[in-house]
Design a protein around this nucleic acid. Structure first.
Lengths: 230, 230
DNA sequence: GTCTATAACCGGATAGAC
DNA sequence: GTCTATCCGGTTATAGAC
């Protein structure tokens, strides 16, 4: 299964050519409109050869996700370097994601159709995505760690996956959002980042410890499952 | 487009036969494993004829969802008639859903794959699903209205869609859940119903009015979009 | 053993005759 | 309203070239 790492240099170049062709077509025409035959043609290889390097169309899409994620990390870096306010950091990171994915709005629904299938290797909790998920959580860890906000240790441990999930929810909202300039998603990001910061402060209140325990217990439930799947 | 209502009596019978055959096959083999050719064969009609009545395989699945929803209403009725405790009502309704969908766990992922595509008529926010969504919200309205718990008017208005969304989240969790007897989902339902009740009580605290406002504003954002889509 | 190509399979969807 | 014949695209089998 040379999908992992082609042995030859020539093979490696071929694989790269196929991937590049696919990404270009995805961006231009969208995922579903792009056929494997088109990809193969654009890359100058046969259909069968394309399948030799990428066992499915989905795996090509996965490579695309990887690219998007790396662009997000890049776009978020200046925000994280620039401010210690938790709200500013959270807001900045979420807006950075928005700006990175915006060019793909017209075919985002089609990406998410496959990604929503728990059996698909593209699902956020799938083992194949563990890397991206960990990276995503690491990003929110940074958001928290670099901020001036004080947090109970247990929250610091549990919040990153939760924030990452929230950010996925925002992406889901964005997919549906047809408002000009994606204004609604922007509003949602602003409101929710304020809200989250306020909730985090509230959650640190000692009076609410029993409630917090309950929330953390539920989060543990959720992660147990994610761990089993991924 | 006689997909809506066949003109002839014969047509009506044919349509029913196709639907019945499809549901049986979905339950036996799952959605993806069932081909339109199998459905047509089992119904004793040609492939083209099946497509005359159901323009896509997805529309057959939609009919299945409708059936599941009606079974849920039926299963929830005794709970709603039997207790005035908010927690008991919420818990009962969520567990009723679980018992209704359990027989379909083995192919639930495949249902949700299509349902997660915003362009699909199966998406919870799609216009075609407005009926089911309204019914679902109405169910949670009953859960609240028939309980002994006092609620601010604004909460009473905003909670049903939120609870419905939570219940969809639980279904999503259930899809991934491979634990024996679906124990994890049961635990999640118990924990989250307790948590929700506690949060509702907390939300009624006058000290938290500013926070509550913010939450309600965000919910308004979310519903604006749902309204546009559905 | 690594790579590439051709030909076919399979199933969702459609066209058009009756 | 029903059929047959066909398209189309993801995927696979397989044969052969380096």
């Amino acid at each position: 299964m040379p999908t992992e790492t082609p042995a030859t240099q020539k093979g490696e170049r071929t694989k790269e050519r196929i991937l590049a062709a696919a990404l270009e077509l995805f961006k231009k025409d969208g995922y579903e409109a792009t056929t494997m035959r088109m990809v193969a043609d654009a890359a100058g290889v046969s259909l069968g050869n394309a399948y030799y390097y990428f066992a499915s169309k989905e795996l090509l899409l996965q490579a695309f996700f990887q690219e998007v994620h790396e662009a997000h990390l890049l776009a978020a870096a200046p925000v994280l370097a620039g401010s210690k306010s938790l709200h500013a950091r959270l807001l900045g990171v979420l807006l950075a994601r928005l700006s990175v994915i915006e060019p793909y709005h017209h075919f985002s629904a089609l990406m998410f159709r496959t990604a929503a299938d728990p059996n698909s290797p593209l699902h956020p909790f799938h083992a194949a995505q563990a890397g991206i998920r960990r990276d995503g959580e690491a990003l929110f860890e940074q958001v928290l760690a670099g901020s001036s906000q004080r947090l109970p240790r247990e929250l610091l441990r549990e919040l990153p996956p939760l924030l990452w999930t929230c950010s996925m929810g925002i992406v889901l909202y964005w997919i549906h959002d047809d408002s000009p300039g994606r204004g609604r998603t922007r509003a949602l990001i602003e409101h929710s980042s304020e809200l989250i910061v306020q909730l985090i402060r509230l959650a640190s209140n000692p009076l609410l410890r029993p409630l917090r325990r309950r929330v953390l217990a539920m989060l543990a439930d959720l992660q147990q499952l994610a761990g089993a799947a991924g």
